[in-house]
Design a binder for these strands. Structure first.
Lengths: 68, 68
DNA sequence: ACATTATGTTATGTTTACCTTACATTTTAA
DNA sequence: TTAAAATGTAAGGTAAACATAACATAATGT
């Protein structure tokens, strides 16, 4: 399953969901869903998020084993 | 716009579209569409592709300026 | 030359990312 | 303490990712 540290890095930058959403061109709900791990964003959005959070996509998102 | 070097790296590994598709759990048409740049895959698929092509997501995919 | 495998491409269908709206709750700041 | 800002969440809609199927052409091997 897909994991990420968007919430953690967003906090580190003191960005609100609204601000990060504006920076990346999506709504704050989309940011919220991604932080909750409710869906897998497009690689385009992943790239934009990683740029604004100043990490690589591979640092921001990774795949983990399913635990049943 | 989103660019990638899936086709180039797939060739370097001598993988057919069918083989890479099987490795990543999608159809060969999906691989074909991605190589043509016709859509932006999910970051989950991007991660799987990058693992099998042995590069990072950031090396495989990047954003470029629109020309007009 | 022929068979096989790989690729290009198009059409139709399903699933899911993402949007809009809305309201409730939590957190922050005056 | 009260208003404002931020967050959680849910319903319903649209668009795009991805599937399936089909057929044509190109490339590869015998």
């Amino acid at each position: 399953m897909l994991k990420n540290k968007v919430k953690e890095l967003r906090a580190r930058h003191s960005y609100s969901q609204i601000h990060l959403a504006a920076l990346t061109g999506v709504t704050r709900q989309t940011i919220g869903f991604i932080e909750k791990g409710e869906f897998s964003p497009s690689v385009t959005l992943a790239l934009k998020l990683s740029q604004h959070l100043q990490v690589t996509v591979d640092e921001l998102f990774w795949l983990e084993e399913e635990k049943n």
